[in-house]
Design a protein around this nucleic acid. Sequence first.
DNA 1: ACCTGAACACCGTTCAAGT
DNA 2: ACCTGAACACCGTTCAAGT
Lengths: 183, 183
Amino acid sequence: MRADAQRNRDRIVEVARDVFREQGYDASLDEVAKRAGVGAGTLYRHFPQRENLLDAIMQSWVDRVHDAADKAVTREGTPREQLLAWFETYVGLISVHKGGPAKITSAMGHEESPIRTKCQTLAAANDRVLDHLREAGALRPDVDSVQMCRLVGGVATVADQGELDAAVVRPLLEVVADGVLAQ
Amino acid sequence: MRADAQRNRDRIVEVARDVFREQGYDASLDEVAKRAGVGAGTLYRHFPQRENLLDAIMQSWVDRVHDAADKAVTREGTPREQLLAWFETYVGLISVHKGGPAKITSAMGHEESPIRTKCQTLAAANDRVLDHLREAGALRPDVDSVQMCRLVGGVATVADQGELDAAVVRPLLEVVADGVLAQ
DNA sequence: ACCTGAACACCGTTCAAGT
DNA sequence: ACCTGAACACCGTTCAAGT
């Protein structure tokens, strides 16, 4: 890739991150192009679909996802407390901008999605936490990470779109946690 | 209301129901106006916001919601089976058109929403089922109907946007059910 | 090889003119 | 009192012309 093209690409991603955080995932791409100082065509050349841009934005925090799963696993407390702490972390991870939870969660398990690798990273992180709890015998044997992502992602989506605050979201996550813990 | 105005309103609602079912909640309102044979201004006069139109569309099935809750309560089977059957009914009720689950669920508990009365109807139906199970001692004491609507609505939203089929949705509803049943 | 930005399409929303 | 539909704004997307 030519140097100027690379520089343009980087600026678009950087700016898009800010714009999406300010205005949500449905923000105008024209605005992104303008702020990045490039023509609309340049944005479309690099990112033919909006989801390609989302994928690029998510690139930077992929490492944090692994770290977060590590922390959740080494945390003090009962399995229930560990699981709940992880759920809240997960909700935070996918709720960086408005509209994010819905887009990410609905792409879960879809092989054709431009953000599939990011979804796989999220599922892998969930798997890591679930495996840890499974070893401790605290978990139902029949739950998998994609289900987990859909359940917690569903709660995150509702929280995002209904603008619920953490105190209201917490009991919803508790229900999900109790549903997947060994009874 | 003048007779021709009433007739126009009725036609708009009738047409919108079809268009939303075909194309989802984000369908063009211009299309609705055209099919209804009215000018765009007429549509906006009757329904200043898109949600006002959704409210009008939902009017017709409010009775069905009560009936569905009645049926769920008198159904044969264990509390878990009753609850699951109700969840599936509920998901079906709010998933009449694409984009519906998200809109309805995120309006839950919002006093200012144009569809608040419909949300209250849904919450009341949920309450009916929950009360029945509570009497049987099958339910955790601390769950309420709005939480229920948000949890099951979250699953319905993910299913709607991720185009999941019933076989994939079922285990998600089971987790929610197990989370709210007495353990 | 890449970029620009005008051009087109589509849709939401308003409002002056009409009945 | 209500309706029409042209007009405007905004945004996504493409592509001919330029470097």
